[in-house]
Every structure is written in C-alpha cells, then in structure tokens.
Design a protein around this nucleic acid. Structure first.
Lengths: 223, 223
DNA sequence: AAACTATGAATGAAGG
DNA sequence: CCTTCATTCATAGTTT
C-alpha cells in the first residue's frame, strides 16, 4: 500500500529524513486540509444527494405536467397562494374557436399578418382564453401539416427509413420522462468500488455512482 | 457507522520518529488513496454538474429540448461506436454548450461580434460539434425570442368556460413543484470559499455551492 | 392502463 | 433584425 513514489506533482508529499540517511517520502495533509476536504466532499454529497432525490421524485412521479407547469407558473406567490392556477399548460382551442380558425384558414390567406393575428386573437378571446402566440402557432402548425398531408397522402407505410439504425430498437416513444433522465442513465458503467470515502446514507446515489463514467479528464478537476 | 474520530480508529495519521526522540505526527495519504479521492471527487463533480444542469433545464423553461439531447451526447460508447449520431441534420446544443451560451447571453452583450462568435464557437467546440453559424443563429433566435417573450406576458385569467376544474385538491401539483424547486433555493447561504479543490468550469455550480448549507452532520459522511 | 393519435409548442435554420 | 419554415418534443384526448 506504499506509494508508487511519483514525486512530480504538487508538494503534497514531504521527505522526512531519518537520522541515518534513509528518507521516508509520505503524502501529508494537515488537519486543516483534511477538514477542507471533508467539507468539500460533504458539499458534493449534499448536493448530489438532494439532486438525486429530486431526480428520483421527478422520474418516479407521473407529474411531468406539474413539472412543466412549474416553468410556466413558477411564480411562488401565485403558486403558494393556493389559488386558481388554471393548470392548462397547453392551450386547447374550444370548438367555437377551432371553427373560426378553420374558417379563416380556409379563406385562403395562408399568411396571417401580425395585425391579423391580433384581430383573430381578440375575436377568439370572446370564446375562450387565448393568446396571440396560440393563434400564431395554430396557423403555423395548420399550414405545415396541411402541406405535409398532401405530400404524403397514402404512401406512408412502405418506407420506414431503412437506415443503418443501430439505435436501441424500441422504447423511444412512450418514455418521455426517460428522455429527460437518460443523460444520466446512459452513462457507461464504471465501477467505483472501495472508495476511500463512502457516503453511507444515500440510497440511489450509489446506483448512480456505478453508472457515472469517470472521464479521463477528471484529474483536471483536481488541484 | 464509523465515527468521526479519525484520530484513533482510522490510522490515517502516523507517528514518525526522528532520530532524536521528537516524534512528528502527520496525516498521511498514499498515492493510491489520493487517487481514490481524486476519483471520488471527480465523480461528485460530474454528477453534481449534470444534475445541476438538469435542474436548471427543468426550472428554466426554454431549454428542455437541449437537455433531452444530452443522452445522445453523453454516452461515449454509443457515440464512438460509430453509426449513430448521424441522421441528425440540425445542430442541437449539448447541455454544457447551452449553459455556456446562456451565460454569455446573460452577460448582457446582445451583440456577439464576429470575433466573439469565433471565440465562443471555439470554446463550445470543446463540448461538442458546433459551427459559427450555429452560434450566430442561436444568438439571433435567442434574442428575438426573448424579446417576444416580453410581448406575451399574457396573464390571461379570464374564465371563458364553465371551468369546474378544481385540479384534484389532494394532488397539489404546484406544491410538489415548489418542493422540488425550493429545496435548493431555500437552503441557507453558506460560503464555501477557498476550497481545497475547485472545479473550474462549472458555471452554475458555484452559485449552488454558495447556497448549499453544509449541514452540521457532514462529518458523518466522511470516513 | 398502456399504446396511439392529434396537436400545441419549442427551436434551429433560411430568406429578405 | 424580422419573418417563415421544418422538425421535433410533449401532452391531451382517444382507443384497445
């Protein structure tokens, strides 16, 4: 367990001369340094632990909607006031609105100008909550999709992209939340065993540890 | 569990006897131990970094997409195994890239000059494929859309429909969301300065560090 | 419930 | 810069 004796790097080693002439090279840390290390690691531990818990709570729950809502209605006052918060993170046109929109769309003008958008928005506002962005997006999507429909009328099933698809075959579609977390899960496994310091009480954390790859550049983080 | 009594149980200190009779007590770490520490810390760094990015991506509404692509980027094996990654015509910023871009964008200068673009591109190139055009476009779009964001602060709270939606009171989404977000935000500030080890390139991380409270029990994590 | 479909929304890029 | 398009994601609603 004695050193491999590389004395090149920082001076975290000292040479203690015995009386005779045999020098003993050891790595030295003062109590202060150890304390700092302890703090540093504890900080990492704390952060990681809590973030992991958040991560778990996010991926476990189905409430991605709530998640998304968080962005939109992140105002703590609003949220905590336990008030209304019509949690419609995504606008959905009412039948009346849709009808009007369709009519306007069929009127030909594929280009709803800015002012037009305003007018339409105002009109539709009489029939439900709506914003200009909603109208804008609607026309945007409507145009694009009506165009695409024409382009691919019935020939959709014959050419399912015979590409060199070595991608993981399935499970792309329904795992929305996985998309969000796979950047962690997909990390190639690398066993960090017998760590000098172990965090005893973080449950899912070790699982993550076993998956995180220690990139070769980690040494650059250190010292 | 192991106590924090590092003086006795865990012989990480040795007594080196000099010739005379004065003993020198020092903390000792072998290279191996140091290496393990290095790995451990780098693991924490990696995990924290990525989790922080996820956290930011979640709490910031405009970059969920970028996060998603993280899985493509983050898996070295898959990326290096060859014929993957292709089939993407459109550049998508990696989380790291996005983070850097956001930081630069937030630094005010709405005008990324030609030279600036070059620099940024070069920097981001360290974290993934990118071109100057990508950077240019990104800033272009970012600016335009952030501007448009202000234009549509539609706090439309009107009640157009017989909205009897009470959103299941027991399952308070907003509350959960708050919990998730606030667990970081609410941590009492504690300055971790002059850390023995610093991670140079994690931007938002230091901000978090300044907010994380080092709980008094951190010593229990250590040894 | 899980899978599917329709569609609102986000965003990189192109044109002017 | 502004507008527009193409692509993709995420979700609400529907079907099996």
């Amino acid at each position: 367990m004695e050193t491999e004796n590389h004395n090149s790097s920082k001076s975290n080693g000292i040479i203690i001369g015995g009386g005779g002439g045999s020098n003993l090279y050891v790595k030295v840390m003062t109590d202060e340094q150890l304390e700092l290390l302890r703090q540093q690691i504890s900080v990492y531990t704390t952060i990681s632990d809590q973030l992991v818990q958040m991560h778990k709570s996010i991926t476990t729950q189905h409430d991605l909607a709530g998640l998304r809502l968080g962005n939109l209605y992140c105002d703590p006052l609003m949220a905590c006031s336990g008030h209304k918060i019509t949690s419609r993170q995504r606008w959905t046109p009412t039948p009346i609105q849709l009808q009007i929109l369709e009519r306007i769309f069929d009127e030909g003008n594929g280009t709803p100008s800015k002012q037009k958008i305003k007018d339409i928005t105002n009109e539709l506002g009489q029939h439900g909550q709506i914003s200009e962005t909603n109208v804008y997006n609607w026309f945007q999507n409507r145009r694009a999709r009506s165009k695409r429909k024409q382009l691919v009328p019935t020939t959709n099933q014959s050419e399912p992209e015979p590409e060199t698809e070595v991608e993981s075959p399935k499970e792309n579609k329904t795992h929305e939340e996985c998309d969000r977390v796979q950047f962690l899960e997909n990390l190639s496994p690398h066993s960090i065993k017998d760590m000098y310091i172990q965090s005893p009480d973080i449950a899912g954390f070790e699982h993550l540890l076993s998956k995180i790859e220690v990139s070769g550049s980690y040494s650059s983080y250190f010292l």
